[in-house]
Write a protein that binds this DNA or RNA. Structure first.
Lengths: 131, 131
DNA sequence: CTCAAGCTTGACGTTAACGTAAAGGTAAAC
DNA sequence: GTTTACCTTTACGTTAACGTCAAGCTTGAG
């Protein structure tokens, strides 16, 4: 009764789902981020790969490099028994948190400026229309 | 009584203030973002250059390319009379706003994950300490 | 059988954003 | 007058993150 088959994905399925190229996905494997199993030649991706891909792409959107993401994943997985490594990871996490905080400020300020620019645009357009 | 002298900066002053290299600042000039005046050979930066530099760096922190920042600045300055250009700019602003909204979500989720990772770290360290 | 669709592994090309010398002008300090 | 500290231009080097062929396996449809 208990299903033991885990969901799998082909490379192009993942590519479509996350809107990236297959080339990019293979590239992430090269960088040690993904490690799909194989069916003969073909790559088979499991749920774990899917999550890692998702996290990687999210990281990218907020400015993490692939190397940074990979490092985090790596520490997260193989650091359970090494205190030094755990502390290194805590430091890394703090560092990232600080960056995110700064980014939030930057985003707020940028949004205000975009809004100001938008209003200036609209005013200028009105002026033109009244000519 | 009314002072008309505007504050000016040397390249290294700006570099120090914003913690970037002089090379980077000259690079931004190459890209058309800054346009300092000269005192003989030497570059003289005014308040306007300073602001543009600040905005550029802020943009960078949230993932804007230099070309994108430059394009925004350019539209902001020379678009007052061209309706098409104003509308293009409005579209660009909307696009950027959408990206910023996505980034906010990404940051929230990433912070949650970093927090979870941090707690896992701390737990693991405790376990080690109790060994 | 063959043919198109999708997979594979190289391997060279590209863009962005500077880094890094190299080689020299200038100006205040000693 | 010669170091020292900045400034300049020119130009080749570098890293990240893929893009873009090339050349070939394989597999289900017709």
């Amino acid at each position: 009764m208990t299903e033991t088959t885990t969901k799998t994905y082909t490379i192009s399925e993942l590519a479509k789902e996350f809107n990236v190229t297959t080339r990019a996905i293979r590239f992430y494997e090269d960088k040690g981020i993904l490690s799909p199993s194989r069916d003969g030649q073909k790559r088979i991706y499991g749920p774990r790969d899917r999550i890692l891909l998702k996290l990687t792409l999210r990281g990218k959107r907020i400015g993490f490099t692939l190397a940074e993401s990979q490092k985090l994943f790596d520490m997260y997985q193989h650091g359970e028994d090494n205190k030094d490594q755990l502390n290194t990871m805590l430091a890394t996490l703090d560092e990232k948190d600080a960056l995110l905080a700064q980014q939030k400020l930057d985003i707020e300020e940028m949004e205000a400026e975009l809004q100001a620019a938008r209003e200036r645009c609209l005013t200028a357009i009105k002026k033109i229309d009244n000519t």
